[in-house]
Design a protein around this nucleic acid. Structure first.
Length: 426
RNA sequence: GGAGAGAUGGCUGAGCGGCUGAAAGCGAUCGCCUGCUAAGCGAUUGUACGCCCAAAAAGGUGUACCGGGGGUUCGAAUCCCCCUCUCUCCGCCA
C-alpha cells in the first residue's frame, strides 16, 4: 500500500498517477475519511489522557483512604464517551483501510504512459528467430505426438487447464527446475528456499493478492489457507513483520514452487497447450533491498532471468511494461518474452518487478540503518527465473525438427541424464 | 485427537489491578579512564499514530502497543472469555 501521509500530502499527484494506470480510485473519499479519522482520534486521545490522569488520582486517594466517588462518577461518563468514539474511529479506520488497500502502486518515472501491452516499449532483444524448412508446429501438437504431454488425461484427472506430463516431458520439467536453481544459486548468489505451497490471508495481503484479487486464487474451504499463485507470496513473507539489519541487505532468495491460479475471467483465452494452466511450476527470485539500490537490483534481477534463456539459446525480447499494463503492486516491471515459432509470437516467460516499499509496508518489512538507527521499509523485488511450463513450450517449439523430434539445448543435456533429443516413444 | 505448560523490549528474564513503556542482567551506542586490549565508571538504548514547532531534520507533547480479538473495571501486562502459535506427554501417522 501507499504511505497514507504521502497520499494525504500529494493527493493530486496520486490522482494523476492512478489516471495513467487507468484506475478509478475515489481519492475524495480517501481525503474525507482521513480527515474524519484524525479528527476523531484527537478527540478520543484527549479524553483518554484525562481518564489516565484522573484514574491515577483515584488510585492516590484510595491509598490515602480518601473518598473518590465524585471522580469515579465523572470517569464512568468519560469512559462511555471514549467507548462510543472508539467505535466510530474503528469504523472510519476500517473504511480508510479498505480504500488504501485497493490503491495500486505509483509507477516509477521510467515507466511510460500506455493503455495496454501494445504500448510496452521493447528494451532489448537477444538472439534471433530460428529458421525452419517446414511449418513449425505449436507445442501442443509436438507434445502429443511425442507422447510427453497428455492434455486429455490431465483434464480427466482434474479438469481443463491441467496437464499430465509423461516420460521425457516430465523429465524435461524436472531438468529445467534443477538447471535454473543451480544457475541462480551457484552463479547469481541466491539462497534456495523451499516454502509452504499454501499461505494464509495475512501473507496474501502482504504481497498484494488480497483483498482485491481473491477471485484469482484457490482457497481451501473451511480454512484460512490459499494455494499460492506464485512463490513470491511465501518467499516475500519470510520476513513479514521483521526489522532487518542493513548489513544483511540485499537478501537474495530463489524458490521453485507450483503456482495455482483460478484464471477467472480468462475463459476462452489460451485454451490449448501449456500456456495458461491452473497449476504450473515456476522458479522465482525474490530480493530485499535498500531503497537506494532497488533499481540497480531490478536490472540485475532481470539479467539473471535473461541468462536462463541465453543458456538455453532461445530468442527473446525484454519489454518495459507501460502504465496501463503494470501489475497492481509493481512500480516497474520488465517482462521477458520468449519467441514461440509454433505460434509465431512472443510470449511472457518472466516478469521482473520492483515493488519499492509497497509490499514492505503491507507486510511490515523494515531495516535499520547502520549510522542513523532509524527504521525504514525495505524495497522488495521479484522475478520469474523462469516459468517452467512456458520454458518447456519454448524448447519444444524452438528446437523442433522436421522428423517430429525435439533436440535439447546443450545446457540441459547433463540434467537429462545425457539424453540430447526427445523422440516419439509410445 | 486426548492431557498439561507457556507466549513480556535486540536477547535472557521479573512483574500484589493504580506511581510499569515496563525491574534486573546481557548486548549495543556514546562519553570518561587507559600506551593498546580487557576490566571499570557514567549516560543512552522500542515501535506506530496524532498534535505543536519547522523548509526539513531535530525537538516538544499526547495516545496506543507486554501473541491476536473481545469483556470486567474509574483504571488491565496483571482478572474473565474466545482464537492463534510454541513446548511436553499419550494416541495416530508419511
Amino acid at each position: 500500500m501507499l504511505d497514507i501521509k504521502f497520499v494525504r500530502e500529494n493527493i493530486d499527484l496520486v490522482r494523476k498517477k492512478m489516471d495513467e494506470r487507468g484506475q478509478n480510485i475515489n481519492l475524495d473519499k480517501f481525503a474525507e475519511l482521513d480527515r474524519q479519522k484524525r479528527c476523531t482520534l484527537q478527540e478520543v486521545e484527549i479524553l483518554r489522557s484525562e481518564r489516565n490522569k484522573v484514574s491515577r488520582e483515584i488510585g492516590k486517594r484510595k491509598q490515602n483512604k480518601e473518598d473518590s466517588s465524585d471522580l469515579i462518577a465523572k470517569m464512568v461518563e468519560v469512559s462511555g464517551r471514549i467507548k462510543q468514539l472508539d467505535e466510530t474511529l474503528k469504523e472510519t479506520e476500517s473504511n480508510l483501510q479498505d480504500l488504501i488497500m485497493i490503491i495500486p502502486n505509483i509507477p516509477h518515472k521510467s515507466v511510460v504512459y500506455g493503455t495496454g501491452e501494445e504500448d510496452n516499449p521493447v528494451v532489448r532483444t537477444w538472439g534471433k528467430k530460428p529458421e525452419f524448412d517446414f511449418e513449425p508446429a505449436p507445442h501442443w501438437d509436438i507434445g502429443e505426438t511425442l507422447n510427453i504431454l497428455d492434455f486429455g488425461r490431465g483434464a480427466k484427472i482434474a479438469g481443463a487447464r491441467f496437464t499430465l506430463y509423461r516420460g521425457a516431458g516430465a523429465r524435461l520439467e524436472r531438468a529445467l527446475i534443477n538447471f535454473m536453481l543451480d544457475l541462480h544459486t551457484s552463479e547469481h548468489g541466491y539462497t534456495e528456499v523451499l516454502t509452504p505451497f499454501m499461505a494464509n490471508s495475512q501473507s496474501m495481503t502482504g504481497t498484494g493478492q488480497l483483498p482485491k484479487f481473491e477471485e484469482d486464487l484457490f482457497k481451501i474451504t473451511g480454512t484460512d489457507y490459499y494455494l499460492i499463485p506464485t512463490a513470491e507470496v511465501p518467499v516475500t513473507n519470510i520476513h513479514y513483520g521483521e526489522i532487518l539489519d542493513e548489513k544483511d541487505l540485499p537478501l537474495y532468495y530463489v524458490a521453485c514452487s507450483p503456482c495455482f491460479r483460478a484464471e477467472a475471467g480468462s475463459y476462452g483465452k489460451d485454451t490449448r497447450g501449456l500456456i495458461r494452466q491452473h497449476q504450473f511450476n515456476k522458479v522465482e527470485m525474490v530480493k530485499f533491498s535498500r531503497p537506494e539500490a532497488s533499481y540497480d537490483e531490478l536490472e540485475k534481477l532481470t539479467l539473471d532471468a535473461e541468462e536462463v534463456l541465453k543458456r538455453l539459446n532461445i530468442h527473446y525480447r525484454t519489454v518495459n511494461l507501460c502504465t496501463g499494463d503494470l501489475g497492481f503492486s509493481a512500480a516497474k516491471t520488465y517482462d521477458i518474452e520468449a519467441w514461440l515459432p509454433g505460434q509465431g509470437t512472443y510470449r511472457e516467460i518472466s516478469s521482473c518487478s520492483n515493488f519499492e516499499d509497497f509490499q514492505a509496508r503491507r507486510a511490515g518489512i523494515r531495516f535499520r540503518r547502520e549510522e542513523s538507527s532509524k527504521v525504514e521499509f525495505v524495497h522488495t523485488l521479484n522475478g520469474s527465473g523462469l516459468a517452467i511450463g512456458r520454458t518447456v513450450v519454448a524448447i519444444l517449439e524452438n528446437y523442433q525438427q522436421k522428423d517430429g523430434s525435439v533436440i535439447l539445448p546443450e545446457a540441459l543435456i547433463p540434467y537429462m541424464n545425457g539424453v540430447d533429443r526427445i523422440v516419439q516413444n509410445k
